[in-house]
Design a protein around this nucleic acid. Sequence first.
DNA 1: AAACAATGTAAGGATATCTGACAAGAGAGT
DNA 2: ACTCTCTTGTCAGATATCCTTACATTGTTT
Lengths: 87, 87
Amino acid sequence: MKSDIQRRQACFPIRVVMEMTNLSARQIRYYEEQGLIKPSRNEGNQRMFSLDDIEKFQEIKSLIQQGVNIAGVKAIFASREQKEGTD
Amino acid sequence: MKSDIQRRQACFPIRVVMEMTNLSARQIRYYEEQGLIKPSRNEGNQRMFSLDDIEKFQEIKSLIQQGVNIAGVKAIFASREQKEGTD
DNA sequence: AAACAATGTAAGGATATCTGACAAGAGAGT
DNA sequence: ACTCTCTTGTCAGATATCCTTACATTGTTT
């Protein structure tokens, strides 16, 4: 199927992320503030998220539900970027 | 890859469709008015489009550029739905 | 010329998002 | 108990986006 969106293409406004993740806007902005996610912005300064971002939010949510705090999530993500090296 | 969006999941506001298709908002609404596309609406009455919709807009655009008029596009889409039958 | 098709544009109102600030609950440490 | 921090809720004012309706424009058809 050729209709797939590029996973990194930022084309989702916050409300869609809210629906797809069941996170509140406050949570989404807070996780960004904490450096877990770096959405791009459109010309009107509104956040635009990619599929990758949404996936990441789902992981964050899952980890949070398991009792991991933001620092923990950040550490997990950081350790992951080690192994990814070049792509 | 498991991150694919359902193709029929309506999660794109009109501005994203504009960017992805290079159609104007006017054109998008007009094509809807003509019955070519039936976007769903969110709670605030704003149009929400699916990947299927976006693909369809790209076909519409291509056909229009080839000189086909709206009635022609409609006919082409209609003839296609014959063959799709049950799914 | 008149009518139609397709698109642009503008106005006024409704909805969504932004930032910044303050509040509140839970948990940790003193 | 008191204080501090973490996380989230909520509110307010400003900006951005989207809605519908209406009128204008350009090209084509009759």
